[in-house]
C-alpha cells in the first residue's frame, strides 16, 4: 500500500487531490466536489464533506481577496446539495411508485 491520506474513501480522493484543487483557487465545496469527484461515490459525501468544508474554511480565511474576485460566492461554509436519495434505494422499489396513488 503506498502512503496516502484519504479524504473520500468511496472515490479514492486523497488530501493531495483536495489541496491541489484548493491551490487552483477552487474554494467552494461545490467546485472541489466536481473537480476532485469527492462525495460522488457510494456514501455520497457522508464521510468526506465535512472534513473538506473544514479544509476550505481555512483556505478561504487565508484568501481575503476572494470576496472581490467572486462576489456571488457564499461567505459561510455550506454543504453541497444533498441529493436524494439520501440512502441508496433500489430501482424496483421506486418503480412501484409509478402511477400508484399519484396526486398533482
Amino acid at each position: 500500500m503506498s502512503e496516502k491520506c484519504i479524504v473520500c474513501p468511496c472515490e479514492d480522493v486523497t488530501l493531495a487531490d483536495v489541496e491541489q484543487a484548493i491551490g487552483l483557487g477552487y474554494l467552494d465545496i461545490d467546485e472541489v466536489k466536481r473537480f476532485t469527484g469527492l462525495g460522488t461515490g457510494s456514501c455520497q459525501g457522508k464521510l468526506c464533506m465535512v472534513t473538506t468544508c473544514q479544509l476550505l474554511q481555512t483556505a478561504q480565511a487565508a484568501d481575503p481577496q476572494r470576496v472581490q474576485r467572486q462576489p456571488e460566492a457564499q461567505r459561510v461554509p455550506h454543504p453541497f446539495t444533498p441529493r436524494p436519495p439520501v440512502v441508496p434505494v433500489p430501482l424496483g422499489v421506486l418503480a412501484a411508485g409509478k402511477g400508484a396513488d399519484r396526486e398533482r
Binding site: M1, K4, P9, C10, E11, D12, G41, C43, K46, L47
Partner: peptide
C-alpha cells in the same frame, strides 16, 4: 477500493460509509 484497490474493512458499522 474503487480506483487504487486499497484494502478496506468496516469503518462506521452503521450503514453510512462505503467501506
Amino acid at each position: 477500493s474503487l480506483k487504487f484497490h486499497r484494502p478496506r474493512s468496516v469503518f462506521c458499522l452503521s450503514g453510512s460509509c462505503g467501506s
